[in-house]
Nucleic acid binder design. Sequence first.
DNA 1: AATGAATGAGCATTCATTCAT
DNA 2: CATGAATGAATGCTCATTCAT
Lengths: 225, 225, 225, 225
Amino acid sequence: MPDTAVASSAPPRRARGAADKAARRQAILVAAGDLFDEAGGELPSVDQVARRAGLAKGTVYLYFGAKEEMFLALLTAELRDWFESFSAMLNDDANTTNDARPLANAMVADLGGRRKMLRLAVQCHGTLERQVAEEAVLGFKQVTASGLAELGGLVENRISGVVRGEGPTLLLQVYALIVGLWQLAEPARSARAMVDRPEFSNLRPDFEHALTGGLVAILQGALDS
Amino acid sequence: MPDTAVASSAPPRRARGAADKAARRQAILVAAGDLFDEAGGELPSVDQVARRAGLAKGTVYLYFGAKEEMFLALLTAELRDWFESFSAMLNDDANTTNDARPLANAMVADLGGRRKMLRLAVQCHGTLERQVAEEAVLGFKQVTASGLAELGGLVENRISGVVRGEGPTLLLQVYALIVGLWQLAEPARSARAMVDRPEFSNLRPDFEHALTGGLVAILQGALDS
Amino acid sequence: MPDTAVASSAPPRRARGAADKAARRQAILVAAGDLFDEAGGELPSVDQVARRAGLAKGTVYLYFGAKEEMFLALLTAELRDWFESFSAMLNDDANTTNDARPLANAMVADLGGRRKMLRLAVQCHGTLERQVAEEAVLGFKQVTASGLAELGGLVENRISGVVRGEGPTLLLQVYALIVGLWQLAEPARSARAMVDRPEFSNLRPDFEHALTGGLVAILQGALDS
Amino acid sequence: MPDTAVASSAPPRRARGAADKAARRQAILVAAGDLFDEAGGELPSVDQVARRAGLAKGTVYLYFGAKEEMFLALLTAELRDWFESFSAMLNDDANTTNDARPLANAMVADLGGRRKMLRLAVQCHGTLERQVAEEAVLGFKQVTASGLAELGGLVENRISGVVRGEGPTLLLQVYALIVGLWQLAEPARSARAMVDRPEFSNLRPDFEHALTGGLVAILQGALDS
DNA sequence: AATGAATGAGCATTCATTCAT
DNA sequence: CATGAATGAATGCTCATTCAT
């Protein structure tokens, strides 16, 4: 697979083949993601992204119809990855006993390395989706939907007590809890100092603590029913 | 004293007394909230708000230091109201049996009329807090923190099984689930049509269904422990 | 003269007599001047001035038709004072020998305590006059003109060599040199650090040195002719 | 190569080469300068400048980081030009006899066509410098400083009596006198009518008369020492 | 006379997107 | 394919001034 090997090197001056184009598209996404993360979850400008990717602003628009699509694609990729990871966890017998705690713990641990996904989720569900053309949301929705369906089925199979057809709902609950807690747990820079004051300590939830508790409750609720 | 009686009507041309000023401030908030809601959760411009309130742009800045403060104040009020409502539910014996369902149902029903609060929550936690001066977040945080503390105590008292000190955490889980699910359940205009397609049906969660399930799980988890 | 004695105390709640009004007007001017100086030569807002004077914004407009008038009046007063001081110098025989240096030195020393006047002069001649109603400039021009005429006559009498009728011209030259040099010598905050670099040393003139030299030249020129 | 020949005409729709870009930058400066002059020394809005140059507002910001930079660049150019002209005068033997009058006359005549420079100088030294980022002042300061150094040396060489090292000081005196007198001589529109009244005749100095006298004095002072 | 609430004109700046080259 | 110059919509905020009280 020479293509794969080359894909990771610098993209060529002109991306002609499909592989080249995919590589360039990927390079843009990487640049966008890095900048997004470095900015603490703030969307970088298209120009910044292009420069970071070593390209011109206009080039970005050859690969993405709009700025928001870029980040939607980014979240799509992050979600896909998370889905896989989650899938693996569900397939691990150690996580699917009658005790929800192992799975919850595994999930929380796994999310520890997914700050970018969490930040993107906050942006996308809160703001981004509003500003994108209908078609642009399509890819995102497709991946999400199919992932949800697949994972939902897995959930129904592996977690006893989950009623047939309720798998996706349970996943949505889980995802909502994760993203919702993350929003509360990662306040903006300006609020950072404030919530560190003792009188506001209960406003800055310990993300992991609260999340673990919530996940256990939701998962255990399914197991018990 | 007809004046006192009509205090809730339109404030006088010039708000001199504290009551008049409060009324005017309130009128601005109402205008802002209505426009926000009408725009489907998009922040209106200050000028729009002023015009809707029958005032000039500059006048708004006599009552709010910045645009974002306005909406933070709005959410503060909405939250305060919700806290009260929630408090009443918790104090209702019918909601604090060993079955979490009555409380969950009550909460979901109550939230049905709080679309504005939910939309504001999405905006504030996702975007607004990032853009406001530290002092401006203070009032918001104070109300939230004290409400959380108070409600948290109530939760610990009224819901058996909630460990002392874990009340606020449970509330955060609940709040996160609510806001998180709302984000997923209220796609932007552009995505509205899309998720109505059958193949995406599982992406447009039935907010009430998923929320009820999640709340029951979290609350029941506490009751059972 | 009880009035004079009272005039310097806090102005009464309501200024009724002419003396009271003058005192209040004076208080406003003092507040304006102090704030102007504290701000490094930046015009304070009317609100700031009013508050500093312990008055409401609107009250300022009972005494001055426009913000700029205030500062024009301020400069008028400063100039009047300087004129007097200058007059005294001219009347001092020690300053009116055939050597211009004593007078130049005296002037420079005197200007050392007139930073406010210099800053005002820069503002007024450069910007303020443009923005004031015609009538408002009247008082300023009157004082300036009469002072110039009077001082000009004195100059013609006391400085040998000054042709009859050229006294005011000489004064204008002197005044222009002073204000012009001051502008160059007091760069804005942002440029302060820069001109302190060695490579720009010649851009930050030693105000006193350059001014003394210039004054001596102009005055001596008259003496010699 | 017709293109090269018409380089000074309107730049192409899109300025790609460095020359085109310089031409466009120049076109913006010309537009800004003309508007500034037409407005009697008032800064036009960026939008006005852009429209006059046949461009969109945003385009201006491709060539200047901020509005003030534009006018600083304008003064820089004007000063550079004046420096050259001044330099030529100094190199002219007819201007460097023991009589300062020829040089003074030449300078005054030369300044007659530099109204734009004088108005800009008033704005820049009085207001503009205060509002610009430090880096933006750099270019201006550099040109000024180097011009001052160069001209200062020339002055020392060509005007007998100027002590080594005092050339720049003398130039500053000259520049200050010029700008200072201009400020006094060009009252704002509103004051124009007023100073034409006979009683204020001495306030509206004959710029050329007073300037000539002052320059002669300063220059002669050097020659005589 | 004094107040201070209300007004609203005025403007620089950013940045996603387009399209000529 | 790539570029990057050009576009221009969009808007929060200040503050001098007015005038109802």
